[in-house]
Amino acid sequence: MAALMVIAVGAGIIGALFGLGGGIIFVPVLTILFGLDATAAAAASLVGVVATSTGTASSYVEKGLSNIRLGMLLEITTSIGAIAGAVIAAYLDNWILFCIFAAVMFYSGIKMAAKPERKISPEDIENGSDMTFTFVDPAETVPEQTYTVKHAKGGVALCTFAGMISSMTGVGGGAIKVPLMNLYMHIPIKAASATSNYMIGITAFSGAIIYMIEGAVILDVACAVAVGAFVGAVIGTKISARTNAASLKKYMSVVFFAVAILMLLKAGGIL
């Protein structure tokens, strides 16, 4: 259990920093290293994902980094996509889904690495718009950051796709939502990953509740994962506060390439 907790701490740190729940790490670790079957691993992983999400979101929401309004709006279509994905998954081979996910991750990773950090210019901000938001980031030279969400309708629609892919592959949608929010909707990277963290907990709630009703949650494993993930999430939020957005974006592209490779290994049946 101690080893599992240590791994969960690492997953929690990555989850908190990059807006990923940590499921991408929990599931292979629990199946390969701890010999759990896929259902038990997914159930314990979801409890860990909630711990990462709420552990980070409580801090990010307080600072205004997590955008609650936008998160709830995007979560509507993410949830609809997840429901649709669960139905569609029955008709598609898993390896196709993992290849699609890997392609999206490679594309996002390249975009993140190639595109310079988007600076918010005054002409981008639409004063008075209900899609204009403000947060404080002490790591930046100008701590108070204001942004206007662009392509809101398109972003809401694309979140359906994120929910669908997430539900079909069993991997959290944060890896899709963060680049979508940053690259397409022009939300600063820190606000995007913080909002993604907030959303992930809501998505994981539905899955975790179902697993609990079915009695699929192995309690000691789930608790070890959750406690470790929470500690990692707390450490991750501290690191995030000291990291500037440009560095975060650079590291994020590396994480996305790693996720893409993991997905290809899953597609090939190696993981």
Binding site: V50, T54, A57, V217, L219, C223, V227
Partner: peptide, 29 residues
């Protein structure tokens, strides 16, 4: 619950903790 794993009630304690944690995001909504 983890610390009390040698006691019979540890499963109930852990279950209560999981329920509270899992329901927290919805409580936030």
């Amino acid at each position: 619950g983890i610390l009390l794993s040698s006691f019979d009630i540890s499963e109930d304690i852990m279950y209560a903790g999981v329920v509270i944690l899992v329901c927290t995001p919805m409580a936030g909504v």
